[in-house]
Nucleic acid binder design. Structure first.
Lengths: 150, 150
DNA sequence: TATTGTTATACTCTATAACTATA
DNA sequence: TATAGTTATAGAGTATAACAATA
């Protein structure tokens, strides 16, 4: 029935999203990272030279969280902080070889989560999901600058 | 590229889910409730006679959270606690007229969120989303009893 | 002794605000 | 004085564990 709030698509999306989060948090645990770290690592791996403040803006999180994530990734040897010689207040984050390796492992782990979560979803439907959700996320980010735009 | 973890469907679902949550948390705020309250209210509104422990199991949350939600809904006048005369340890939660009215308002609010979030998604695609996500949530709950099954 | 609801406590997550170092 | 990164603090959210009433 359409009068049930639980039939709202966004309600459904929220619940499914929570399940997905729980699943890949568990799957990533052996590597000592959470989803947010993978998001940052993937962004950095694209060759970004943004400094930390800008990274925060792009990921839609507070600068202090970037610091925390960078600390953790640095401790894992996945990144190194590099001070800008021209302005020593700024620093960029560089992915190490070990970090690239970690990223690959996490990527495989996430693909496993996809396979497990979407067991009963056909390949065609997975592509449809992708085609719908990706632009949805982008348009949502445009509406509200606080949402991640990277 | 398929080697980007951010292209994982579950990664995408998690992010979209977070956006959806943020959106309708804001939309529901004027009514003094959050999404979880609406979920409980909708479940109760279906005529459930389950006592609190069982509600917790069905929603996949701790009993103490049921207590907190019941407290809040009771304060809003949306439900009343009814002690089971046969076993006074147990109690069921009954939706009041005011609660039914609140539920209707929340349902409308969620439909508004759908419309806003899915502005650029065609009606056909919305139905596809629904058809994919609903069974996905059910099968996920079967896999893992800790996930909501109601 | 076992179970229901409840309360107390602790933990996770993340943002805001205060601080430091550079500019 | 202003800005980047950092650290300290606080708030939301929820689970676990202790507790009281009832069985």
């Amino acid at each position: 029935m359409s009068s049930d709030p639980r039939s709202s698509v966004s309600f459904l999306l929220a619940k499914v999203g929570q399940v997905a989060t729980t699943r890949f948090t568990a799957k990533l645990a052996p590597y000592g990272v959470k989803a947010k770290h993978v998001g940052l690592l993937a962004l950095l791996s694209g060759g970004t030279r943004d400094f930390q403040q800008e990274l925060g803006r792009r990921l839609g999180v507070a600068p202090s969280l970037i610091v925390a994530m960078a600390d953790e990734l640095e401790q894992l040897g996945a990144i190194t902080r590099i001070r800008d010689p021209d302005d020593r207040r700024k620093s960029t984050l560089e992915v190490t070889d070990s970090g690239r390796d970690l990223l690959k492992k996490c990527t495989r782990a996430l693909q496993e989560v996809d396979d497990e979560l979407l067991t009963h979803v056909s390949q065609a439907d997975r592509e449809v999901l992708h085609k719908i959700l990706n632009p949805l996320l982008r348009s949502a980010a445009e509406d509200n600058p606080k949402e991640p735009r990277a």
